[in-house]
Amino acid sequence: METIKTLNKWANVNTALPIDMLRIGLGVFLFIKGINFMTSSQILVDLLTPFQNWGGSMLILHYVAPALFIGGLLIIFGLLTRWASLAQIPILIGAIAINFFGEIHLLDLAIATITLFISLFFLIYGSGKNSADYYFKKQQ
C-alpha cells in the first residue's frame, strides 16, 4: 500500500496535460470499442471463434462489451482509473491471444499491444491531477 501511495504522490506532482490527454484518449478508444461491440455483437462472436470450444465463451461475450464501455467512461473522467485499467488487462491479453490462435492481423495486434501497455501504465501511474479521483481526494 505504501508503494501505491508513493507512486500516487509522484504522479500528482509530476502530472502533465499530455498524460491526461493520453488517459482521455485511451478512455475514448475503449468506450468506442465497447459501443462497437454492443451494437454489432456478431463481430465479437466472430472474433471468439478460435475459442468457441473452450468453456466460458458466453461469459466472455457478456464481459467484454460492458467492461470496455464502462471502463472507458471511468478512464475518461479519471474515476477509479486503476480499477478500470485492471479490468481492461484480461480483455487486451485476450485480443492479443486471438491474433495468435486465429488469423493474424498485424494492425489489430499492434493496436491491442499498444493499448495494453498504455493500460498497464495507467494501472501503475493512476489518474493524475486532472481527474475525478484527485478532485474527490481534495474534497475530503
Results as ranks from 00 to 15, higher is better:
Met1Thr: 03
Met1Asp: 14
Glu2Asn: 13
Thr6Ile: 09
Leu7Trp: 10
Leu7Arg: 12
Leu7Gln: 08
Lys9Cys: 14
Ala11Ile: 00
Val13Arg: 12
Pro18Cys: 00
Pro18Arg: 06
Ile19Tyr: 06
Asp20Thr: 10
Asp20Asn: 13
Ile24Lys: 10
Gly25Leu: 02
Leu26Pro: 01
Leu30Val: 12
Leu30Met: 15
Leu30Gly: 09
Lys33Asp: 13
Lys33His: 12
Gly34Lys: 01
Asn36Ala: 12
Phe37Leu: 08
Thr39Gly: 11
Thr39Lys: 11
Gln42Gly: 09
Gln42Asp: 14
Leu44Val: 02
Val45Ile: 09
Leu47Asn: 08
Pro50Gly: 07
Asn53Leu: 07
Gly55Trp: 06
Gly55Tyr: 14
Gly56Val: 02
Ser57Pro: 03
Ile60Leu: 13
Ile60Ser: 08
Val64Trp: 11
Val64Ala: 07
Val64Tyr: 00
Ala65Cys: 07
Ala65His: 08
Ala65Arg: 03
Ala67Lys: 00
Leu68Val: 03
Gly72Thr: 02
Leu73Asp: 04
Leu74Glu: 01
Ile75Gln: 08
Ile75Arg: 07
Phe77Val: 11
Thr81Lys: 03
Thr81Pro: 04
Arg82Gly: 02
Arg82Pro: 02
Trp83Lys: 09
Leu86Gln: 00
Ala87Gly: 09
Gln88Pro: 11
Ile89Ser: 05
Ile89Pro: 02
Ile91Gly: 00
Leu92Gln: 10
Ile93Cys: 11
Gly94Ser: 04
Gly94Pro: 02
Ala95Lys: 07
Ile96Trp: 09
Ile96Thr: 03
Phe101Glu: 14
Phe101His: 11
Gly102Asp: 03
Gly102Tyr: 02
Glu103Leu: 12
Glu103Ala: 12
His105Pro: 11
Leu106Tyr: 14
Ala110Leu: 15
Ala110Gln: 10
Ile111Cys: 06
Ala112Trp: 09
Thr113Leu: 06
Phe117Ile: 00
Ser119Glu: 05
Leu120Pro: 00
Leu120Gln: 05
Phe122Lys: 02
Leu123Ile: 08
Leu123Gln: 06
Leu123Lys: 08
Ser127Gly: 04
Ser127Val: 00
Gly128Val: 07
Gly128Lys: 07
Lys129Met: 08
Asn130Val: 11
Asn130Tyr: 11
Ala132Met: 15
Tyr135Ser: 15
Phe136Leu: 12
Phe136Gln: 08
Phe136Asp: 07
Lys137Glu: 14
